[in-house]
Structure formats: structure tokens, C-alpha cells
Nucleic acid binder design. Structure first.
Length: 482
RNA sequence: CGGGGUGUGGCGCAGUCCGGUAGCGCGCCUGCUUUGGGAGCAGGAGGUCCCGGGUUCGAAUCCCGGCGCCCCGACCA
């Protein structure tokens, strides 16, 4: 079970702390397979809440779910030149089945563009068939050299949207729309502020025209790419002969997009909010939003307390609040507090004889604030308000941390200094040359996370590349990334 | 793939240098007393000491060869 000692602190060793938070909260565990993790019920519950919210947003923007095979004929991957170059080195390949060597090896999907476009080629004939707006919830496999729980594992869970459109403008609008959906989800559900913007060529998805991303800053001031949305142009349409007849009777290749977020988001959630006592989970994604801990000595007290606890749970459940009564016996209340704190439960209600008598409960928040009695009358409304406030406070606290760790209009020296020291986001001019990007990466370990969208750009646009001094073509944000 | 670390009941570790048949803490089970911030006492269960070979009367310990895992780096949408 969960161990009972203090966690390594964030300040002492952020990586150790991160792993311990996961173990303490029982979110995941290492598996017998190298690089693969087991997502335990507490972790999977967060993923399910994420899925629920995202899936609703996908449906609301007109998408449907479908499912494509795990196995992809190896030849499919090589049809798009950049794509195969990007993914071939990290694929797992099945060469035998049913005891016999396969005629053509099957790649375990690292992403599903190729098999999906092979089907779109069959399904799309006319502009009347467009747009095709499909999402898939699936697992994928990428043979990574070095793995970390949730952040980079050999197998991971994600969703991948794959859409096909009649025009370039429509595809671009879809790409941007889904980036916006991700941003909304990350901010409003995860309480994790993100920068949005364009990736440079070197960070672009293999086979895409343009890649947009949501970039978050973790508590150790390293960046996490939290979601990507790609405008694939006609690259995959050409490779897979996905053509359609236009209203004018001409033949054209479809314009397509793909976009995805993964269980990596859980890693982002942990590293954005959690503290030295364990997981902090924003209320909207918490498995249990409220845990009720009954306190009693005598049997008589126990009956009354449990009755009040259960009635309160029913009231909260009826109000749509996910509530759990921890009625385990033989465990002292204090031990339960520590356990639920480590698991990140946003709110805790303690109900003892005194509370029963006063028709109230003691309310404790996972983040900050004193314990205080709240009347049972109207408690659902009160807890809803608390959770809404906590949701906003978590987002604002994370945003404040990010801004405190960001510098704008940086010079070359400042970039070097920042990356050698605290990290964080460094805004500065960029000449657009891959050579500068490479040099910066070699010398500072920092990469361009995004060329930020207008709302994230600095009030004064940089005029010179902070590295080479040539005219700047775009403001860029550098950081050391996960 | 390079560097470092580490493999001993479920977890964390001691024991290894100097060979003598395995111990501590936590957790787990039973009972009693407890329960408003990590309970106490008593009793108990649980171990191929990572694997293979060698030396020896005898190996967790010494020698040889493997393997796993973690961290850092390289790699990575």
C-alpha cells in the first residue's frame, strides 16, 4: 500500500519527487515489460475524466469516433518520405504470426495516419463526402530509448483525430480549431496554462505542412509539449491517393489534418499542481472530488455519524459531485487524511459527533486554507463554489509561476544564462535559420517550443535574432523541454 | 548506446570488505485497547539473498560470465 514516509521534496530532486507522487497516489506502476507502465485505477480514473471532457468537445465540434487496426503493413509507413524517416527508427515490428513468418511484417502503430488514409482513399470520392471528421481513442507504441512514467513510455494511450477537407483553408481552420479545443481543455479542466503557436521545421510532425502545439511550463521550469495539431496539407493524400471530385468536376487531393493528446497529460497535470505532500488534482478531473471521513468512538456515535455521512454523500452525488465515504475501520482519521491528500482529493469533509450535533461538517481543502465548519444545509452549493474557486486558483497560480519564470526580449547572454540556471520560457527574436536553432540546442539544451500566437507575443516585437543578430522573422519561445 | 547507481520477505534497507546457513523498519494477518492530523501492546505469516557456472567441508558474502531495473546523457512530434 501507500508508504507512510514524507516524499522527496521538489526542491531536493524533482524527478524523484515526481516518481514518488505517482507511487504514493497509486496512479501507475512499472511493469514487467521494459519501458511500459501499468496505469492503476487511480490514474486511469483521471484519464477517464479527461476522455469524457475531450470526447464531448470533439463531438460538439462535429467529430465521430472510429477504430482502426493496431497493425499497419510495413510498406504503408514508407509511402510518405518524411513520415517513414521520422517514425521507422522507433517502431516495433511483428514478423511472425501463428507460428509462421509473415509475408509482410506488420508495424505496431506509432500513429495511424497511414492506415487511416488507406481507408479514406476508399471512402472519399466526391466533395460531397467531405469533410471527414474522425477521431480514434487508441494505444500506440514508440520504441523510445529512455522512458518516464506518463511522460514518455513505450506504449501509451491517446486520441488521434484525422480529418479530410476539400480546401486548404478548411484544413487550416480545423487545425487551429482543435488546437483551441486542446487549449480550452488544458486551461479549463486541467487548470494548466499553455502557450499556443507554431512549431519550427525541426520540431514539425514528420509529414506535416505545419505543426501547432500547446506548451506548458512545469514546476521545475521545463517545458512540456502537451498537445499538437497538424496541418498535413496534401502530403498524405498524395501518398495514399486520397482524391475527390470537386463541384466543378475536377479531381483534387484532399487536405487533411491530424491532432492528438495522450496520457502524457497526466504527467503534465502532476508536474503543474502537485506539492511536497503528493498529488494535487484540479476538481474537474478528480476521481473523487470530495472524501468524507467519519469520526466516532462509540457504536452509538458510529451509527449517527455514518448515517449523516451517507446522507451527505447522497446529497452531493445528487448534485453531481463525485463523493466517497471512507468508512474503513481500524484506521485513524489522521491516517486517512494523509492518504487522501497524497491522492490529490480536492476537498475533505470530516464528520464526527460534534458535527452531527451541529448539523455541519468540517471542510478541509487540499490546497491552502484553514479547516472550517460548513452547515450541511446547502452543502452541495457550497462545495461547488469551493471547487470552482479552487479550479480557478490552480490555473492562476500556475500562470503566475509561468510568468515569473519567463523573460521577454532576451539577449543571447540571457538565454545562455537562463538555460544554465533556472530554465523557464525565454522569448526572443529568431532569424528562422535552422543553423541558429541547432547551435542554440547544442550550447544551451534549449529548443524553440513555439513561435507564439499573437496573444502570447511580447508587446514589443523583437527585431533581431537573439543568437546571430540577423533580422528576426518571428518571436520565438525557448525552453528546455521534457 | 555511453556514464553512474542498484538487485536480499509486499516496500525501503542492513549484512558482503574479513565465508559459518539471514536481520531491521514499514506494510500484512489475528486479538484487545484505541479513533477530531500518520495509534499502542501481544501474537503471527511471509525469503529460489537477480540468474548461471566456479572455488570451498560450507557462499548473500570470494572468482568468472550473464541479466534486470533506476538516474544522468545521447536519442525523441
Amino acid at each position: 500500500m501507500a508508504d507512510t514516509k514524507a516524499l522527496t521534496t521538489r526542491a531536493a530532486d524533482f524527478s524523484a519527487w515526481y516518481n514518488e507522487v505517482i507511487m504514493r497516489a497509486e496512479l501507475a506502476d512499472y511493469s514487467p515489460v521494459r519501458g511500459c507502465m501499468v496505469i492503476r485505477p487511480n490514474g486511469y480514473a483521471i484519464w477517464e475524466e479527461m476522455q469524457r471532457a475531450l470526447d464531448r468537445m470533439f463531438k460538439d465540434t462535429g467529430h465521430q469516433n472510429a477504430y482502426f487496426p493496431l497493425f499497419i503493413p510495413q510498406s504503408f509507413l514508407s509511402r510518405e518520405a518524411e513520415h517513414v524517416e521520422g517514425f521507422a527508427p522507433e517502431t516495433a515490428v511483428v514478423t511472425h504470426g501463428g507460428g509462421k513468418e509473415l509475408e509482410e511484417p506488420l508495424v505496431v502503430r506509432p500513429t495511424s495516419e497511414t492506415i487511416i488514409y488507406s481507408m479514406y482513399a476508399k471512402w472519399i470520392q466526391s466533395y460531397r463526402d467531405l469533410p471527414v471528421l474522425i477521431n480514434q481513442w487508441a494505444n500506440v507504441v514508440r520504441w523510445e530509448l529512455r522512458t518516464r512514467l506518463f511522460l514518455r513510455t513505450t506504449e501509451f494511450l491517446w486520441q488521434e483525430g484525422h480529418t479530410a477537407h476539400a480546401t486548404e483553408a478548411e484544413a487550416e481552420a480545423e487545425t487551429r480549431q482543435m488546437l483551441g479545443v486542446y487549449r480550452t481543455f488544458m486551461e479549463d479542466w486541467m487548470a494548466m496554462p499553455v502557450l499556443t503557436g507554431l512549431k519550427t521545421d525541426s520540431e514539425r510532425f514528420a509529414g506535416a505542412l505545419r505543426t501547432y502545439a500547446c506548451e506548458a511550463l512545469m514546476q521545475d521550469d521545463r517545458a512540456l509539449q502537451a498537445g499538437t495539431s497538424h496541418n498535413l496539407g496534401q502530403n498524405f493524400a498524395r501518398a495514399f491517393e486520397v482524391t475527390f471530385q470537386t463541384a466543378e468536376g475536377t479531381l483534387d487531393y484532399v487536405w487533411s489534418t491530424s491532432w492528438g493528446v495522450s496520457t502524457r497529460l497526466i504527467g503534465g497535470l502532476i508536474m503543474t499542481h502537485s506539492d511536497d505532500n503528493g498529488l494535487v488534482c484540479p476538481p474537474r478531473l478528480a476521481q473523487y472530488q470530495v472524501v468524507i471521513v467519519p469520526i466516532h468512538k462509540t457504536d452509538e456515535e458510529k451509527t449517527a455519524v455514518l448515517d449523516t455521512a451517507q446522507r451527505t454523500r447522497a446529497v452531493l452525488a445528487a448534485a453531481g459531485i463525485r463523493t466517497h465515504v471512507d468508512a474503513r475501520e481500524g484506521i485513524k482519521p489522521g491516517a486517512k487524511y494523509y492518504e487522501w491528500e497524497g491522492r490529490g482529493v480536492p476537498l475533505r469533509l470530516e464528520i464526527g459527533p460534534r458535527d452531527v450535533a451541529a448539523e455541519s461538517a468540517m471542510l478541509a481543502r487540499r490546497t491552502g486554507g484553514k479547516k472550517e465548519p460548513v452547515p450541511l444545509a446547502g452543502i452541495a452549493e457550497r462545495l461547488h463554489a469551493e471547487m470552482n474557486r479552487m479550479q480557478i486558483e490552480l490555473l492562476e497560480a500556475a500562470r503566475a509561476r509561468r510568468e515569473a519564470a519567463s523573460i521577454r526580449g532576451a539577449t543571447r547572454e540571457q538565454l545562455i544564462e537562463r538555460m544554465a540556471g533556472p530554465g523557464g520560457f525565454v522569448y526572443g527574436g529568431f532569424c528562422g535559420a535552422a543553423s541558429c536553432e541547432t547551435e542554440i540546442k547544442e550550447q544551451t539544451k534549449a529548443t524553440i517550443r513555439v513561435l507564439p500566437d499573437p496573444e502570447f507575443r511580447s508587446p514589443v516585437a523583437p527585431t533581431r535574432c537573439l543568437w546571430c543578430g540577423q533580422p528576426s522573422v518571428a518571436e520565438a519561445v525557448w525552453a528546455k523541454a521534457y
